[in-house]
Write a protein that binds this DNA or RNA. Structure first.
Lengths: 253, 253
DNA sequence: CGTAACTTTGAGACGTATCAATTCTTGTGG
DNA sequence: CCACAAGAATTGATACGTCTCAAAGTTACG
């Protein structure tokens, strides 16, 4: 059984065969399918289960009083949707799917137990949380001090890197079901402006984007345009596992 | 001994006398003073100690390649500066003081031990981390979908609330050593624009700001201008502890 | 094969940045 | 206690990035 959760955490630490088996059985215990545009967990809701995205694509978002949507993060397979639910009374945002997806459900009591162990699994869970914090901080830098072009380039490049480390692709092409409206809600622009920027990226030979597939034709230039540095992802073991992801300077792709 | 760390965590959970004593002794073990504008922990650095801010004011920030600074969060007494350091190899951002400050230092091995317990202290530490995530997400909403006026109002109002729950004030006036340049670096504006907005807030009778003191003269209007809702702070026990912080509708002043 | 969702295009308005100059504060040493 | 320096706040005029709103294409899908 493929286990994107374990694959993701192995960017940080090494698991024994026994630990891998345990992670597999945790995921197998209880699963659920979702359609596109469905909430995995609603804003203000509580649940006794944490959800781990297994397949599909989801996002964290909030709906503002005036009806506008802000996407705060995209979730790819292996990501934990609602780590907070085992400790907080209710969600302060929603997690919803963008495409049809499946999740594994882990009971909060099991999650609590896992976190209390002196094991690589517990450490990896902490690492995941700390990395989430890093990703959010990077997004704040994006929106505070980078212009629309850099912001969009950064988002596209980050998605490429995250798909590569999750093992979903080995090339520079990724499945990309995110609409321009979604991109606009994530970067704080209007869809029109996203559209015009994407056209420029295409004209400049940086990307191709059609048929729900994004191909980064010039990754080095896209990375430098985005001022991307992978430090905030804390991929301590990626180099050892997959040297191909790195270029000669030791930088990701 | 005053213990802002314990006070903050008591917004979430109740401690026994023994737990309070333990928290006191953890803070007393090793402390350090910092001058204004000094790094508590530098970008890329590693340390064997976590720092908890005891007095003063600090911020998380990053310096971009072009020299610009983005402030990602302000830290008030009781806040944990670098929770990630016990699990990650190095910081992906810096934490620096804005005013002269003191911190308590807790060895990472002690921190790890605390987190593994089945105790209210461990739960409160998790709560703090989850709340930090919430604050960052709220800042992303701010910068993505609110205009400069709302953004600045939101920041000012959040600082008032955080000072009130930390016990630093019982009125609507707080010590405010944050310069307009700092505010600009936190909200992603220019100092000039911050200045013009603050003038408007003053003209509109929302705030007074002079002599490093911020007085919110019309908290209700400032809150509604900011579209502020305290949900993301997860102050589960605040109402029980300090009903005065709430207005009649049950919303945080 | 029709319809809804998504993408593309255009022209004008507006919010915020820029950059430079001035005034006000604050802290410091004579 | 005053004078000065350095930092912080304020002001102004202009430029530009991005939004707005509306309409026309295009694509995906039941």
């Amino acid at each position: 059984m493929s286990n994107p959760w374990a694959t993701k955490m192995e960017q940080f630490t090494a698991f024994t065969a026994g630990e891998r088996e345990r992670l597999d059985s945790l995921l197998a215990f209880k699963q659920r399918g979702f359609e596109a545009q469905e909430d995995i967990i609603a804003d203000g809701a509580h649940s006794d289960y944490c959800h781990i995205l297994l397949t599909g694509l989801a996002c964290r978002y909030k709906i503002l009083p005036d009806g506008e949507r802000q996407i705060m993060a995209f979730l790819v397979p292996g990501d934990l949707c609602d780590a907070e639910i085992f400790i907080l009374k209710k969600m302060d945002h929603a997690v919803g799917t963008l495409t049809a997806s499946t999740t594994a459900m882990i009971h909060s009591s099991v999650m609590k137990m896992l976190l209390r162990e002196a094991s690589p699994i517990a450490e990896a869970l902490w690492w995941g949380t700390m990395t989430d914090l890093g990703v959010l901080r990077e997004r704040i830098v994006d929106q505070g001090r980078r212009d629309a072009t850099e912001r969009l380039a950064h988002l596209l490049y980050e998605m490429l890197v995250r798909y590569r480390i999750s093992g979903a692709t080995k090339t520079n092409a990724i499945d990309f079901p995110i609409t321009q409206t979604d991109l606009a809600d994530a970067t704080g622009m209007t869809p029109s402006h996203v559209n015009r920027l994407l056209q420029r990226f295409r004209e400049d030979g940086l990307i191709e984007l059609r048929n729900r597939t994004l191909t980064v034709t010039n990754p080095l230039r896209l990375r430098s345009l985005a001022q991307f540095s992978a430090t905030y992802l804390h991929l301590d073991r990626t180099e050892a596992r997959d040297p191909a992801v790195y270029d000669r300077a030791g930088e990701l792709i």
